[in-house]
Simulated scan of single mutants.
Amino acid sequence: MPLSTFRVAWTPPRTWFVTARLLEVAAVVAVLGWALQSWQVYESTAQNFGEDGTPTGAPPFLDRVTLFAMYGFGYGQAPFSAPLACLVLLGLVAILHFAQPVSHASVLRWEVFSLWAVVFLGNVVLVLSVVVALVRGDPNAPPDDGVVRIDTGPSIIEVLAAGATLPVLCLFLLSVSALWWLRLPVDFEAPDEEPDPSVRRPRRWRPAPAPDANVDDLTLDGVELIEPVERLHPRDDDGDGSTPSGYDDYFRRF
Rank of each mutant, 00 (worst) to 15 (best):
R136L: 04
R136P: 04
R136F: 01
G137Q: 07
D138M: 01
P139R: 05
A141K: 02
A141S: 03
P142M: 07
P142T: 08
P142N: 02
P142V: 05
P143W: 10
P143R: 15
D145F: 03
D145W: 13
D145C: 05
D145T: 15
G146P: 08
G146N: 14
G146T: 13
G146W: 11
G146M: 12
V147D: 08
V147E: 09
V147M: 06
V148Q: 12
V148G: 08
R149I: 13
R149Q: 12
R149P: 06
I150V: 15
I150R: 14
D151W: 14
T152K: 11
T152I: 08
G153L: 09
G153P: 14
P154N: 04
P154H: 06
P154M: 05
S155L: 03
S155W: 02
S155T: 15
S155A: 07
I156V: 14
I156E: 02
I156T: 11
I156D: 01
I157V: 15
I157H: 13
I157Q: 08
E158R: 08
E158I: 04
V159G: 02
L160V: 00
L160K: 01
L160M: 00
L160S: 00
A161E: 13
A161H: 10
A162F: 10
A162P: 02
G163A: 02
G163C: 03
G163M: 03
A164S: 13
A164T: 10
A164D: 10
A164W: 07
T165F: 08
T165G: 00
